[in-house]
Structure formats: C-alpha cells, structure tokens
C-alpha cells in the first residue's frame, strides 16, 4: 500500500521540485551571488578599501554598538516575560502575550515614527529633553530604542512555547528543596531553556544588525555618525559608489550566512522538532 504523500506521479514530483529549486535559485541564491560578485567587481583591493574607509568603519562600529545594547536588553526582557507568562498566573496575561507580538505586526517605519513623535523636538517629550540637552532622536539612543522595539519579540517568542511545555515541575522541586529564586532560575530554569534562548538571541541579533526602516527614520543620516551598515549601503549606492555599497552589503550577507549556520547547529543541538507544537 502506498500512502497519500507519495502517490503523485513522477512528473508531478519533478515539477514541484523544479518550482521549489527554481524559486530558491532565483530569489535566494542569485541575489546573494550578485552581492558578492558586485562587491568584488573591482578586485580584492577595492573591496578592502571600501570596508576600511572611515565612514564604513564608523557604520560597522555603530551597528555593533546598537546590537550590543539592544540584544542584552531583549534577553533580559524576553526571559522575564517568558518566565512571568509561563510560570505564573495573573490577570492580563493574554494581553501581555498579544503586546509582545506587536512589533511584528507594526511596520518598522511606523515604529521609528513613534519615537520621533515621542522624543522629537516637536514631540511630547521634546521640549523637556531640549531643556535638559538630551538628544535621543537623530542620535545613538534613538537608534537603540528603535532597534530594541523591532527586535522585542524574538527572545520571548522563542522561550514562551518552550517554557510552557516544560511546565513548572523543576522549579517547584527546586523551591521545595529550599533553593532561592535566583538559584532556581540559574540551576533549574536556565539549563532547560539555554538552546532555545541562544536561538532567540541569534535571530534577535540578526534583525538588530540588519534593521533598516525603523532606524532610518530616527537616524538623521549623518555620515560617519548615525549611519548603521544598512543605511550606509543605501547612501553609498545613491552616490554611484556601487563597489563600496556591495562590499558593505556583503558583510551583512556574511552575517546572515553565519547566522544561518549557527541556527542549523542550534536546531540540531536542541532538537527543534522535539520542541512541541509551539511553532
């Protein structure tokens, strides 16, 4: 007896395979190759020159800085939120879950504009900020805030189904044996969630470094100062500086590839399929 899944004719299977592979090649592989081909179009020397150029270095540094602040912030938030949601019962729990997803459903441009409306010179807090000479919008703090907002859900979304599935047995056992809250978290909860947590951090970091829309709105686009790598790529491209634009873009593409490899390793490591029906 053949089961339903393999009963299609060979032709149908070949067609489906061809469509899948064709799609993969055309929309995923080709653009990636084009990025690297364009970046190296002027030779390896021109490629390196474009990357060590001061404005490009400033963009790389800023991108790393923004990620280095927003990723830890979202780790803390993500663990706290997942912990609260899965280990305790409290009113408003489902509303909190919905709100965690908000950044996924809001366009990044809107996310950026929210901060302009809040902290801009004409925004709600603008006059107070100006009085105290605090610059948030068009400076690094605004870019960090916008990035934290768009990467908000990654860690929490990864942990909530995982921790919900694991239940509270381990924690209750630890507490009944006299462990403090911190010990319980460190010795019972964290080991259970570490692979899921790493996975969430990886996704969070990839988005933090690659974010364009939200950051673009609050950046002010000052060369060498408030341009992250994605913004710098756009500027270089608009200046007919195609080799440099694709060289910086290739760094982002490399980051994506490294993320992909690490992601596969993690999935293999923490047995993604055993994770349950959360995804």
């Amino acid at each position: 007896m053949r089961n339903g899944a393999t009963s299609e004719s060979r032709l149908a299977r070949a067609v489906i395979m061809a469509i899948g592979l064709g799609f993969f090649g055309l929309f995923l592989l080709m653009p990636l190759l084009v990025v690297f081909a364009q970046a190296l179009a002027g030779g390896i020397g021109a490629y390196l020159d474009a990357i060590v150029e001061p404005d490009a270095l400033a963009a790389i540094r800023l991108t790393l800085l923004v990620a280095a602040i927003s990723v830890p912030a979202n780790i803390v938030f993500g663990i706290a939120a997942a912990w609260a949601i899965t280990k305790f019962d409290f009113p408003g729990k489902s509303i909190l879950i919905t709100f965690i997803d908000l950044p996924f459903s809001v366009s990044p441009v809107v996310s950026g504009l929210i901060y302009v409306l809040l902290f801009g010179a004409q925004g709600w807090l603008g006059p107070w900020l100006a009085e105290h000479d605090i610059q948030i919008i068009f400076a690094v703090p605004g870019m960090v805030l916008a990035t934290i907002f768009v990467t908000f859900p990654f860690v929490a979304r990864e942990l909530i189904p995982l921790m919900a599935e694991q239940g509270r047995d381990d924690e209750e056992a630890a507490l009944s044996l006299g462990a403090t809250g911190w010990q319980t978290f460190w010795h019972a909860t964290l080991p259970n969630i570490r692979w899921g947590l790493l996975y969430g951090v990886l996704l969070c970091n990839a988005r933090a470094m690659g974010e364009f829309g939200a950051v673009s709105v609050v950046s002010g686009h000052i060369r060498g100062e408030t341009n992250t790598m994605p913004l710098h790529v756009e500027i270089l491209y608009n200046e007919y500086n195609f080799i440099a634009a694709f060289a910086v873009a290739s760094l982002l593409a490399l980051l994506a590839l490294v993320t992909l490899v690490l992601k596969s390793l993690l999935e293999w490591r923490y047995d993604y399929h055993g994770k349950g029906t959360g995804h």
Partner: peptide, 8 residues
C-alpha cells in the same frame, strides 16, 4: 522635517 524634529 528632520531639522524641525531636532536634527541639530
């Protein structure tokens, strides 16, 4: 618009 919003 950015200058109005505080780009210095």
């Amino acid at each position: 618009r950015a200058i109005q919003d505080g780009l210095e």
